[in-house]
Design a binder for these strands. Structure first.
Lengths: 259, 259
DNA sequence: AATACTCGGTTTATGGCATACACAGATTCC
DNA sequence: GGAATCTGTGTATGCCATAAACCGAGTATT
């Protein structure tokens, strides 16, 4: 299951950490993992993940397709390396002392990373990743943000997992909506919809969906981004707020509200 | 951009709602959207999303590959139809009166749906979906759960979006981890890791990662599922808790959130 | 009822993609 | 100097989505 021949770590992990015995014999290498990954990322940035084919990457480097396989066991591995390289976080990050602020900043870092390389979200999120350098870095930063929070390590991990998951999904949604205008439905389409999405069958949604302007009939309204951004903040504050409350010893489940 | 020839709705949407003019002339149809989608889902359930190829689906129905294209414009469309069909929610759902409980139940419904057809998470989450029957249904239920909550419609949508995003990500993580045991690293691998993930470079994470048992060296510990489940509850409660607090007029930010 | 139109299913063909395999030259180890 | 080993390449395979052209089955029109 994706082990290095000998180290007991997934190959991609070993490579990303730079621990991969470099062969001694044989001709000098014309390529490197770094160059390959960089080339692949460049393509992904410019033309999307779908354009990242072994052929395209190799060509952009002036090598044959098969040459890549001397460095990477297959496309999966390349994708994982790309993923890790793409979610890099600035060298120096200073997190505010207040954990709430720090968490916001941290979430922002993750978010920015995804915005910079949206295609990362299109990579099948199987396996590992957690052990890759940048993931480790990000996780460490996350824990740093929660440094002063009176929680068990396990819980802190839960928090940063929750937040990063949240950010991920949000960006994903965001990008999907950006593709088409909010949802992009013509007036005729809306008419048709109103015949099946009736208030009696969907009493709660129908009014909102049909009357409201969630279904823009124009490509994209200026307010779209704002709406999304607001949504992002909204959800994040929800989580932070919940955490804050939890730290103060109150849970939603428990009865009785002290202060 | 993926419109029906005439309705102004994405084809997949029209098909899923059963609004798609059935041709009058010509031979009787040997297939139907329903059968095709059902066959595809069966394959996905049994062998994973990757096994869902046009060829496989057609074969399982006893037809030629190309015959499918008489019903579906391409694989994308098929995938979207599968997605919608897969996230079906029970006919009768009774949501508790208390919105917190209701939200938990609702989240559970979504979660169950994903558990029943995990491959849904592997479908590229582009576009639409929101307008498909089951998405509409789920959204309606979500709003129903929040019925008595004193929030604007817009905000309620934000909530159910946040929660469903959260659930989605959680299940995804869950499944990824289930593939290999928690992270599946051999003792040797852990040794290697400890050489790069040093406490000085990653002061907050290193202790947790290396000392703790987050990296199981065994395929899967019995506690894994419990851990995940606990994580799910943890995050969900965070959101609910935050929401609860917000409703009670307090935000984590403390400044100018109104009331 | 005959004809024209339309549609369903099949056959065949194309092009893209990941990747296995085997070779020739380069480089290093003994 | 030779053996071993590694690099980059050329060639080949097989899977996959999908386009195009065709025949025969139905329906609508006259």
């Amino acid at each position: 299951m994706a082990e290095t021949t000998e180290t007991g770590l997934p190959r991609a992990v070993a490579i990303a950490w730079g621990m991969q015995e470099v062969p001694q014999r044989g001709p000098n290498r014309g390529l490197s993992h770094e160059r390959i990954v960089a080339a692949a990322i460049e393509i992904a940035d410019a033309e999307g993940l779908a354009a990242v084919t072994m052929q395209a990457v190799a060509k952009s480097l002036g090598f044959t397709t098969m040459s890549l396989y001397r460095y990477v066991s297959g496309k999966d591995e390349l994708l994982r390396l790309m993923q890790d390289a793409a979610v890099a976080v600035p060298e120096k990050v200073s997190l505010p002392g207040d954990w709430r602020e720090a968490l916001r900043v941290w979430a922002g870092l993750v978010r920015d990373a995804f915005h910079a390389h949206p295609w990362v979200l299109g990579i099948p999120r199987g396996q590992v990743s957690v052990l890759m350098p940048n993931s480790v870095r990000v996780a460490d930063l996350g824990l740093a943000a929660l440094r002063d929070l009176p929680l068990a390590d396990e819980e802190k991990i839960g928090v940063i997992l929750t937040v990063s998951q949240y950010v991920t999904s949000t960006v994903e949604l965001e990008l999907n909506l950006a593709d088409e205008g909010v949802v992009a439905v013509t007036p005729e389409g809306l008419d048709l919809l109103s015949q099946v999405v009736t208030p009696d069958r969907y009493p709660h949604l129908a009014p909102v969906l049909l009357a409201g302007n969630y279904l823009e009939t124009q490509p994209v309204a200026t307010g779209a981004d704002e709406g999304i951004d607001a949504g992002y903040e909204f959800g994040l504050e929800l989580i932070i707020s919940g955490l804050d409350r939890r730290v103060h010893g109150q849970s939603a489940r428990g009865v009785g509200d002290g202060a």
